[in-house]
């Protein structure tokens, strides 16, 4: 068989620290090929036959888990699901013991979500197996950033020199952190915006601002984050109407960005809170496209992390 090998890839996706631009771009190209698989009548290829993948979610999630599980199944991997909320962790077992128990059952790769930051890194050290971070605390959610980058590139072409605004609760957002890490690698400028109480002290890769106008001005794309209601209870926001008055992305404010600037949201969405409800269904919205692309991107991640020795 004629060889046309990709650059070698890290056998894990914890964040983007171990990845370079060439590897990320190659992965996004593979995701493009996976789109073609998903467009077929038979949406399944035998590539990962014989591999067993575990989704281990210590924090509840439906869409990310389904997206990963479908991605693995469409590549013919066997999938087992472990849900921390309903399993032994509620009986006091530690992350480490839970993962080691699973490891005795012959798992080839782990897709891990935890409420605590850093657990996927630890797991990678404990298990010596590929680990894919599906979200750890406020720290990182690399496959979300990859699918955002993929969706943006599909719409805008190259991200070189493009300005991407991220609006909302930046402080508690792993999506913002991963995008601030990834998008500049692909040549984009990231401006993160929110009220001062919801901005971190610093965000490597991004410029921070409390001015929505400044963030959206001439932006090539706008990413809106979910505002969690419990932020009000913790006193970080005075009231919902005040947030909406200052930071909701609505039709008028979207006019500050470039004409037809695409709109992204990682979901789940609070309609008419962080985003004017009808905008989510407008032609500018890529929200549904993001979900569809998520599966192709995760198929590509599984392929690169599992196939080939490092």
């Amino acid at each position: 068989m004629s060889e046309s090998a990709t650059p070698s890839f890290p056998k894990h996706l914890l964040d983007f620290r171990d990845w370079n631009r060439r590897q990320v771009e190659s992965l996004l190209e593979t995701a493009q090929m996976m789109q073609e698989v998903l467009a077929r009548p038979v949406k399944k290829v035998p590539a990962l036959t014989g591999f067993t993948v575990a989704t281990v979610f210590f924090e509840p999630s439906t869409r990310t888990r389904i997206s990963f599980e479908l991605a693995a199944r469409r590549m013919s991997a066997d999938v087992v699901s472990f849900s921390g909320a309903t399993s032994s962790t509620t009986k006091g077992e530690t992350y480490r013991d839970t993962l080691r128990t699973l490891d005795q059952m012959g798992i080839d790769a782990y897709i891990l979500r935890t409420d605590a930051a850093g657990v996927p890194h630890q797991a990678h050290r404990w298990l010596h197996k590929p680990v894919i971070n599906a979200g750890d605390g406020w720290r990182a959610h690399p496959t979300q950033a990859l699918l955002d980058a993929f969706t943006l590139r599909e719409k805008l072409g190259s991200l070189e020199g493009k300005k991407i605004a991220i609006v909302g609760d930046i402080l508690h957002s792993r999506v913002a952190r991963s995008n601030a890490e990834l998008l500049p690698m692909l040549g984009a400028t990231v401006v993160a915006c929110g009220p001062a109480t919801l901005l971190p002290g610093s965000l490597p890769g991004a410029t921070l601002t409390t001015s929505l106008r400044e963030a959206l001005y001439e932006a090539d794309a706008v990413m809106v984050l979910r505002l969690q209601k419990e932020r009000m209870e913790k006193g970080l926001l005075p009231s919902l109407p005040e947030y909406i008055a200052a930071y909701q992305v609505n039709r008028e404010r979207l006019g500050w960005a470039k004409p037809q600037a695409p709109l992204l949201h990682p979901g789940p969405m609070n309609r008419d809170v962080e985003l004017e409800g009808t905008l989510a269904d407008s032609a500018q919205s890529l929200v549904e496209r993001q979900v569809a692309n998520g599966q192709a991107v995760r198929m590509a991640v599984l392929y690169h992390v599992l196939v080939g020795k490092s």
Partner: peptide, 21 residues
């Protein structure tokens, strides 16, 4: 492109590039 249909993906060293079908 036959990459995703190869019978040696679980044992090969280099990762083949997935190309267009």
């Amino acid at each position: 492109d036959i990459t995703l249909y190869r019978d040696d993906l679980s044992e090969i060293g280099l990762q083949p590039k997935v190309r267009e079908t």
